[in-house]
Design a protein around this nucleic acid. Structure first.
Lengths: 116, 116
DNA sequence: GAAAAACGTTACGCATGCGTTCCATTTTCG
DNA sequence: CGAAAATGGAACGCATGCGTAACGTTTTTC
């Protein structure tokens, strides 16, 4: 069930959500951090640093640092993979789920406000 | 003509556009810069530093710096208001319009890819 | 006309993210 | 086993954005 948007609606939607996010300023994630967080929550696990780096086309330290930051914010969690102790498995958290739930609400709300 | 999205669709849309933007990495605007740019292009002029600061609920230097950066990228332009020379009027550019046109296309494209 | 207000900018010290490079640990392979 | 590969992280110097406070210019106010 695809969604058909006009150019004006598409930008209006992006604007509304961005503005809302900036004004509230709860936590200010980078676009990269946002993409990482969404990937973790929308794509089936498991997720590793290397996998995320390849998926987003960025270097590994970028992922490590993003996980550091978002870990402190309680949005994600890291645990070592006991089956292959070189790997780190990235886990979801309640805080992360709540954060994205609010983001989703914001997107839906802005979608509802759209004019044709 | 509002758009009704499910929670999953809303996050999927945001994810798709963010991922696309990160991968391409043409120019990496802050969420604030993005909101400022969209405001300038979607809300009728004139736009001033003070007005933008109030609208986005940020301080004036934030606007000045964002205009510096986006000015160098060719996305916006600044000219002094000759009627009241204290003011600076923020103008759109061809580059900015093209940039947002591509963003809008990305949003529409992701909207079309949505599953129910 | 002089003082006050308004506007945008600059200066400062600080925090955070970046890319490159190197490293420690663990696993794989000959 | 021992060498090679793979994984995630730390270290470094750098670039950019932030908030606060001050400034220069221009306009308004009395």
């Amino acid at each position: 069930m695809p969604i058909e948007l006009t150019a004006s609606q598409a930008l209006g939607l992006w604007y509304g959500v961005s503005l809302n996010q900036v004004r509230m300023d709860e936590r200010d994630l980078t676009l990269r951090q946002m993409a990482i967080l969404l990937h973790i929550y929308l794509v089936p696990p498991p997720h590793t640093v290397r996998g995320l780096a390849a998926e987003l086309n960025v270097t590994k330290p970028v992922i490590t640092r993003a996980l550091d930051t978002m870990g402190e914010l309680g949005l994600v969690d890291r645990i070592r993979d006991e089956r292959d102790r070189r790997n780190v498995v990235i886990k979801r958290t309640v805080g992360g789920a709540l954060y994205l739930e609010k983001l989703g609400d914001r997107v839906r709300e802005q979608g509802r406000r759209l004019s044709p």
